[in-house]
Amino acid sequence: MQPLRGITYKLIAVMCFIVMQSLVKWVSKDIPAGEAVFFRSLFALPVIVAWLAMRGDLRTGLKVARPMDHVWRGFIGTCAMGMMFGGLAFLPLPEVTALTYAMPLLVVVFAAMFLDERVGLFRIGAVALGLTGVMIVLAPRVTSLGGETVKTMEAVGAVIVLLGAVCGALAQIFIRKMVQTEEVSAIVFWFSCTSTLMALLTVPFGWAMPTPVQAVALVACGVIGGVGQIFLTSSYRFADASLVAPFDYASMLFAILIGYFIFAEVPTGQMLFGASLIVFAGLIIILRERQLGIRRAKARQAKTPHN
């Protein structure tokens, strides 16, 4: 294990995803979310294929044990990406980032519902705290429903992003089940394939012809997203998940800086307070997962017969 290398790769991945989202936000006034998903998925494919070939995993990346699992994971994951991209058109980048932090909290809930994982009072309390933070972030948007058109669209954007977080959490549940029968390389490769095809279904709802500059930005979204996916996957090869997971929250710092200097967005105190509660709850859950992992490892060692 190389912890420092793992952390560095995770930070690079986080930065890649924020830059990708920033590019999507920049073109979002003219380019529909479904079209952005298409470019993001299509142009990530060459990067992923090259990476799999370099690792010698290309053959494994093409093997599928349960095809329909990939279809459903692709559908849910594409919905999550499309909703997040859609929300970027209406909300400041830091606010979208804060709302997507609800995803790991919802994973805990869905794991208990669909995977029969035991969730103690400690993690239930952390989830409740995090969801309180989500409500604090959402409150100014929800109360503006029915008011000015701009405010109403911001409220709709917030709801869309939250629904995207729900879909993202469900996608994580799918992945937890899929890794029992599928290779990680196959999950990554076929998601890009299925999301590319599913994004094409949004063509009847209206796509726009991008300008040359917008086309470059959209292609860059795919390439940068693919690079981010590679660094994210690689980070877990060099460090424990419990060590690198907290660095997901560095995305808030990146989002605030990019939002301020590129989009002239200044986060409100209420949004920052709500985001802080969500981050704190997420860190509590990560710490708890690490403790439970250590206990499970010790239990397995105790059960292993020694000669």
Rank of each mutant, 00 (worst) to 15 (best):
M15Q: 07
W26K: 13
F174Y: 09
L232H: 09
L138W: 00
L292S: 10
F174D: 05
S251P: 06
E154M: 10
L232C: 08
D248G: 07
L163V: 08
C193P: 01
G274I: 05
V279Q: 10
T60V: 07
D57K: 09
L218M: 15
C221K: 02
L52K: 01
F85W: 08
V24A: 15
F280M: 15
R55N: 09
W26D: 14
R295H: 11
I187V: 08
V49Y: 03
G225S: 13
Q301E: 13
K29A: 10
M252S: 05
V213E: 09
V127D: 01
V107K: 03
M20Y: 01
G164I: 11
V108Q: 01
Q2N: 12
L283G: 13
M252I: 09
F205V: 04
G293L: 08
G133E: 00
L93E: 02
A65N: 07
I136R: 04
A102K: 06
G157E: 00
A220V: 06
L131I: 09
T304N: 13
A250E: 11
I286N: 03
E183M: 14
L145E: 05
V179R: 08
L162I: 05
E289R: 03
V19R: 00
P104V: 03
R300L: 12
T196A: 13
A302G: 08
G86F: 07
P46M: 04
W190N: 03
V166D: 03
A171P: 04
I285H: 02
I160N: 03
P305R: 11
H70K: 06
L218Y: 03
G274P: 03
A171M: 12
Q214R: 05
T304K: 12
A128P: 00
Q172M: 11
Y101S: 15
L277T: 01
I285C: 05
V179T: 12
L287W: 12
R237M: 12
L200T: 06
T149V: 14
R176W: 00
L58I: 11
Q2K: 10
M135S: 13
E148S: 12
G86E: 05
V119Y: 12
G226K: 04
V37E: 02
F273V: 12
K63A: 10
D240N: 14
R296D: 15
W190P: 00
R288L: 13
Q214W: 01
F38V: 02
F17N: 04
E289N: 07
